[in-house]
Design a binder for these strands. Structure first.
Length: 826
RNA sequence: GGGCGGGUGGUGGAAUUGGUAGACACGCAAGACUUAAAAUCUUGUGGCCGCAAGGUCGUGUGGGUUCAAGUCCCACCUCGCCCACCA
C-alpha cells in the first residue's frame, strides 16, 4: 500500500525496462512535428556520476519529457567526451590500456544513468574515441587545412612540465596548467593551430543573436574576444645622431594622448630589439634582459605585475605629430602577441607607463587636465590621470574634451598619413596539437621536403595504434606501425605524431548526434532538421572555451556548406554547483554524497524531485538528506491519492451540479496547470513543484468530503490525472505506474499529452484586496471582482477598522490598484 | 585593477517586476495514535511587547524618490565567480 523503497525499486526498474523495450525515447525525424533538441554537455568518463551530473541530467530530462508530453518531436541523446589525459595517466601508472580503462568507466556511468530514469535515445550513443567519430574529426581537420584554417607554426608555447604537454592559452589558469596545477614553462616548438581569429568579428557580433543565453556568459565571451578599436601609429626610428635607421608601428586606443608621448617601449620578444642593439655598447645588457624575461614562466611574469623592469635601447622614435625625439625602451610589461608588440608610452595618462617613468626617472607631461583641477601640476601627481578631461599642451586640440579629441586626433593623424585606424582582438588562434596518445591523430604526413600533406580521405580514419610505450614522451613516436604513412605509390612518409586537443572533439559532437550513423559527416537535411540545439545545459566553467569553439565550428560547418545554421545553441542553461555544508563536493575533501546511495534509499524519483525543488537550476544547491526524505513523502502522498481514483465514473462534469468548494477546487486545478506550464518554460522547477504541493494541500482538505456526490468523485478523478501528468517529467516512474493503473493503456504517459487549462476557469467572482492607511496594512476585504474604484472607496472608508486610523482627518488621497490594493492617505 | 552576480527567518528558498515580505519545504516545538519508538496526522513557528485581540520593528549598512521600496536612485560594507601588465 505505502510507497516503500521495495515498491519504488520494483516500479522504477519495471518502467526503465519497459521504456527501453518499447523504444519510447527513440527520435525519428518527422517534418510534420515541431522538433525539440535537448542536450547536456557530454561528460568525461571519470568513473562514477557525481551529484553535479545528476543535477545536470535531471534538468535536461525534465525538459525533454515536458516537451514530449507537449507533442514535440524530441531528440535527447547522451555520449562521452572519452579522449583525454586521465586515461593516459592511468596507462602510465598501471600499464592499463586507455581504451579498456575508458570503456569500463563508460559502462558504469551508463548503468547509473539508466537507474536515474533518464529518457535518452540510446541508439544515438556517441563517444569521441570511436574511430567512427574521430574519423570525421580528421576529415574536418583536412578541410580546415585545405582552407588555411589549420596551419603549423613555430611558436613559444606553454609547456606543462608535469603532464609533459603543451597547453593552449586558455588552459593556463593563473600561470598554472589547468589540470596538473603545475607552473607553466616556456618552450618553442612547431605546433598546429586553428585559425579561430578569422571569425573574431563574427563570433563577437553574433552574440547579439543569442537572446536566450545568460548575459554573463555572453559578457565573458565578449571580454575573451576582446575587440578594441584604435590607431596604429608609425614612427621613424633614429640613432643618437638623428639619422633614420628604421620605422616602427605602435597600437593605441588613446590617440588623444599622442602629444604626451615620452618614450616608446617594445616587448622583449620584439625582433627589433636585438637588431637595433647589435654591436652596440648595450648589446650585452639588452640580451641578458631578453633572456631573463622570456625564460620566465607566465606566472613569474604576471605575478610580479607591480614591478616593471626595462632597458634603454639607445635609439629614438620621432613622434610624427610634433617631431619630438623620444627614447625607445624594452620592458617586461609589453606583450608581443597583442597589438604590434610596441607601445607608445604616455606616463601622465597610463598607470603602467607612469610607474615605469617614475622608476627610471623619465619625463612626464600632461596633455589632459582633470576638469576639477585645471591647473594640475605634473610634480604633484601620484598616479596617472586616466579619465576624461580637457586637452592641454596639444596644439590645435587644446580645450577639447579628451573624448572628442580621441576621435578628432585619430582622423587628423590618418589624414596626415601618420597612422591608420585599426581593430585588434585579444582572441588568439587555438593551439590544438598535443604530444599525447589518447586523442584523435592529426591526419598529416610530411613529404620529402618536410611539408605537411593531408592523408587522403580514403585512408581515413588514421587509427590509434596499440603498439605504443607510455611514459616516455609522446607515445605515438614509439609505435613502429604508426610512424610511417605508406602512400599509394608504396613510398613511406613520416607521419604527424601529435594528436588533437579534446576540445576539438567536443566542438561539433552535437551536430553528429543529428545523424549519427551517416556515412558522410552528416546528412545536410537531417542536420538542418534537428539543429540548432534548442536547449543546451552544462556548467558555467565551459562559458568560454567549449562554447566559443562550438560556435566557431558551427560557422565553419556553414562555410564548408555542410549545414545552414550559424549558431549551435538556441537556449543555454548553466546549472549551479552542488554543495554539502557550503562546500563544493569533492573526493579530496571527502564530502561527496553518492548518487547510488541516495537512489538506493529513496528512489530516483525522490532524488530528482529534491534536486529540482531545493534551488533554482542556475543557483548553487545545498545538499540535504532530510529534504530528500521530504521529497519522498510528497511522492507517497501522490501515490496514496491515486488510490482514490474511481473507475466507475467518467470525468464529464455537469457544471450546474458543482458547489462552491467544487468550483474552488477546479479553479485551483486550472491555476496549477498554468503555473506549472509557465514555470517549466522558464526553468522555474522549484516554484512549479511548490504549486503542486499547494494543490495537494488543498486536495487533502477537499477530499475529506469525497463520496458525497458524483461530481466530487469526478473532480477527484480529474485531479489525479492532472497532478500525475504535471508530475510526470519530474517523477516519471511513479507517474507511469499511476497512469497505467488508472488508465490502463498501451501508451506511455510520456506521449499522453500535457494538461490544458482554460483561461475562463481562472476567473474569480470575488477577490481579496488589501487596504492600507498611509502605506500601512490595516485591513483585508473580499469584493466582487468587477467592483469599481468608487465602490471600493466607499467600502473601505466606511469600515470600522479603517476608520480607527483615519479618524476624522481629511482624506488627502485615495490610491486604488485594481484588484490589489487600496491606500488611504490622511 | 576590470567585469559579472549575490546578501531576505534556525535552514533551502518564494514574492505576479514598485502593491499583503517570508509562499512551499526542511528543521524545531506541542498534541493525537502507540506499551514504546518509527511512520502518519493535527496545531504552532521572523524579532520584540502582550494571556489574547492587537501593536511595533523587520529583506547587508546609511541616505533619497514614492500614496507605497526586498524591488528604483546615490554612497558604503561584504561574499562569490570570471578575467587580469591588452597599450
Amino acid at each position: 500500500m505505502s510507497y516503500t523503497i521495495d515498491k519504488i525499486k520494483e516500479i522504477e526498474s519495471k518502467w526503465q525496462k519497459n521504456w527501453a523495450e518499447d523504444a519510447v525515447f527513440k527520435a525519428v525525424k518527422d517534418a510534420s512535428k515541431p522538433k525539440y533538441y535537448c542536450l547536456e554537455m557530454y561528460p568525461y568518463p571519470s568513473g562514477k556520476l557525481h551529484m553535479g551530473h545528476v543535477r545536470n541530467y535531471t534538468i535536461g530530462d525534465v525538459l525533454a519529457r515536458f516537451r514530449r508530453q507537449q507533442g514535440y518531436n524530441v531528440l535527447y541523446p547522451m555520449g562521452f567526451d572519452s579522449f583525454g589525459l586521465p586515461a593516459e595517466n592511468a596507462a602510465i601508472k598501471n600499464q592499463s590500456d586507455p581504451q579498456d580503462w575508458t570503456e569500463e568507466r563508460m559502462t558504469d556511468m551508463v548503468a547509473q544513468m539508466k537507474t536515474m530514469g533518464l529518457s535518452y535515445d540510446w541508439d544515438r550513443f556517441l563517444f569521441s574515441h570511436s574511430d567512427d567519430y574521430y574519423k570525421w574529426n580528421q576529415w574536418l581537420f583536412i578541410q580546415m587545412f585545405k582552407k588555411g584554417l589549420a596551419y603549423k607554426k613555430k611558436s613559444v608555447v606553454n609547456w606543462d612540465p608535469v603532464d609533459q604537454t603543451v597547453l593552449a592559452n586558455e588552459q593556463v589558469i593563473d600561470g598554472k596548467g589547468w589540470r596538473s596545477g603545475a607552473e607553466v614553462e616556456k618552450k618553442e616548438i612547431s605546433q598546429w593551430f586553428i585559425k579561430i581569429t578569422d571569425y573574431s568579428e563574427e563570433l563577437l557580433r553574433d552574440l547579439e543573436k543569442l537572446n536566450n543565453w545568460p548575459e554573463r556568459v555572453k559578457t565573458m565571451q565578449r571580454n575573451w574576444i576582446g575587440k578594441s578599436q584604435g590607431s596604429v601609429i608609425r614612427f621613424d626610428v633614429v640613432d643618437a645622431d638623428s639619422e633614420k635607421i628604421d620605422e616602427l608601428e605602435t597600437f593605441t586606443t588613446r590617440p588623444d594622448t599622442v602629444f604626451g608621448i615620452e618614450y616608446v617601449v617594445l616587448a622583449a620578444e620584439h625582433p627589433k630589439c636585438k637588431e637595433w642593439t647589435a654591436g652596440k655598447s648595450n648589446e650585452q645588457e639588452v640580451n641578458t634582459f631578453i633572456h631573463d624575461v622570456t625564460k620566465q614562466s607566465t606566472i613569474e611574469r604576471v605575478g610580479d605585475a607591480q614591478e616593471k623592469k626595462g632597458v634603454d635601447l639607445g635609439v629614438f622614435a620621432v613622434n610624427p605629430v610634433n617631431g619630438r625625439r623620444v627614447p625607445i625602451w624594452i620592458a617586461d610589461y609589453v606583450l608581443m602577441d597583442y597589438g604590434t608588440g610596441a607601445v607608445m608610452a604616455v606616463p601622465a595618462h597610463d598607470t603602467r607607463d607612469f610607474k615605469f617613468a617614475k622608476k627610471y626617472d623619465l619625463p612626464i607631461s600632461l596633455v589632459i587636465a582633470p576638469s576639477d583641477q585645471p591647473d594640475l601640476n605634473v610634480e604633484d601627481m601620484t598616479e596617472a590621470f586616466v579619465e576624461v578631461g580637457t586637452m592641454v599642451n596639444s596644439e590645435q586640440f587644446n580645450g577639447l574634451s579628451s573624448d572628442q579629441a580621441k576621435a578628432d586626433i585619430a582622423d587628423w593623424m590618418a589624414s596626415k598619413g601618420y597612422s591608420h585606424k585599426a581593430t585588434t582582438f585579444r582572441l588568439k588562434d587555438w593551439l590544438i596539437s598535443r604530444q599525447r596518445y589518447w586523442g584523435t591523430p592529426i591526419p598529416i604526413y610530411y613529404d620529402d621536403a618536410g611539408h605537411p600533406q593531408p592523408i587522403p580521405e580514403e585512408d581515413l580514419p588514421v587509427k590509434l595504434p596499440k603498439d605504443v610505450v607510455f611514459g616516455q614522451g609522446n607515445p605515438l613516436e614509439t609505435s613502429e606501425s604508426f610512424q610511417y604513412y605508406v602512400a599509394k605509390d608504396g613510398k613511406r612518409y613520416r607521419r604527424e605524431t601529435d594528436t588533437m586537443d579534446t576540445f576539438f572533439d567536443s566542438s561539433w559532437y552535437f551536430i553528429r548526434y543529428a545523424d549519427l550513423n551517416s556515412d558522410k559527416i552528416i546528412d545536410r537535411d537531417t542536420a538542418n532538421y534537428w539543429m540548432p540545439v534548442d536547449q543546451y545545459i552544462g556548467g558555467i566553467e565551459h562559458a568560454i572555451l567549449h562554447l566559443l569553439y562550438s560556435r566557431f565550428f558551427t560557422k565553419v560547418f556553414r562555410d564548408l556548406d555542410l549545414i545552414d545554421v550559424d549558431e549551435p545553441f538556441n537556449r543555454l542553461l548553466t546549472q549551479g554547483m552542488v554543495l554539502l555544508h557550503g562546500e563544493v563536493m569533492s573526493k579530496s575533501k571527502g564530502n561527496v554524497v553518492d548518487p547510488d546511495d541516495m537512489i538506493g534509499k529513496y528512489g530516483a524519483d525522490a532524488v530528482r524531485l529534491f534536486i529540482l525543488f531545493a534551488a533554482p537550476p542556475e543557483d548553487q544547491l545545498e545538499w540535504n538528506d532530510r529534504a530528500v526524505e521530504g521529497a519522498w513523502r510528497f511522492l507517497n502522498r501522490i501515490y496514496l491519492f491515486a488510490d482514490l481514483f474511481n473507475k466507475e465514473v467518467d470525468d464529464d462534469i455537469d457544471e450546474a451540479q458543482m458547489d462552491g468548494a467544487d468550483r474552488d477546487m477546479e479553479r485551483l486545478r486550472h491555476e496549477t496547470i498554468k503555473k506549472v506550464t509557465e514555470d517549466f518554460e522558464h526553468y522555474k522547477f522549484n516554484t512549479a513543484i511548490s504549486s503542486l504541493m499547494i494543490l495537494m494541500n488543498e486536495v487533502d482538505k477537499y477530499k475529506k468530503n469525497v463520496g458525497d456526490s458524483e461530481t466530487k468523485k469526478k473532480i477527484i478523478n480529474r485531479l489525479i490525472r492532472t497532478v500525475n501528468k504535471l508530475l510526470a517529467p519530474i517523477a516519471p516512474h511513479l507517474s507511469e505506474e499511476i497512469y497505467q493503473l488508472i488508465d490502463g493503456t498501451e501508451k506511455s504517459i510520456v506521449t499522453s499529452g500535457w494538461p490544458a487549462y482554460d483561461e475562463k476557469a481562472l476567473i474569480q467572482e470575488t477577490i481579496q484586496i488589501v487596504a492600507q492607511v498611509n502605506g500601512k496594512l490595516r485591513g483585508k476585504f473580499q469584493i466582487p471582482a468587477d467592483s469599481s474604484e468608487e465602490q471600493v472607496k466607499d467600502l473601505v472608508l466606511a469600515d470600522e477598522g479603517i476608520k480607527k486610523y483615519t479618524q476624522d482627518k481629511p482624506i488627502r488621497k485615495f490610491v486604488y490598484v485594481k484588484g490589489k490594493i487600496a491606500n488611504v492617505v490622511v
